[in-house]
């Protein structure tokens, strides 16, 4: 059972790789923010699977921290990476 979680986590590395490829190639800044968002979600999942694979409950705290900090980093990207254009980001 333990190895299944570990192998599933390895598979998720492919998603990380895809996100990274999009981050490197991504034509627009939006693609890069998308990539950062993918990193966050995938990291949360990998850490949850590790928590089950290693049987270490503390890893769920790491996943919790990942979830929250990925959101803050993604918002930082949206609010700062585009600011050089200075257009209203999302006012109606």
């Amino acid at each position: 059972m333990q190895t299944l979680h570990f192998i599933l986590a390895l598979l998720l590395f492919l998603t990380l790789g895809a996100g990274l490829w999009r981050a490197v190639v991504g034509p627009t800044a939006a693609d890069r923010m998308l990539a950062v968002q993918v990193f966050g979600t995938t990291a949360v999942t990998i850490t949850l699977l590790f928590a089950q694979a290693f049987g270490n409950a503390a890893l769920r705290d790491v996943a919790l921290m990942f979830a929250v900090l990925a959101a803050v980093t993604a918002v930082a990207f949206v609010r700062r990476a585009w600011s050089e254009v200075g257009v209203d980001d999302d006012s109606e």
Partner: peptide, 28 residues
Amino acid sequence: GKLLFIWLLVLLAGASVANLITKGAMQR
């Protein structure tokens, strides 16, 4: 409880960030 809370957080963050990115991309 913790697992569901994590999932809720990711949902909240994912949805709002996607919205922000879309609006920003459209305006640009």
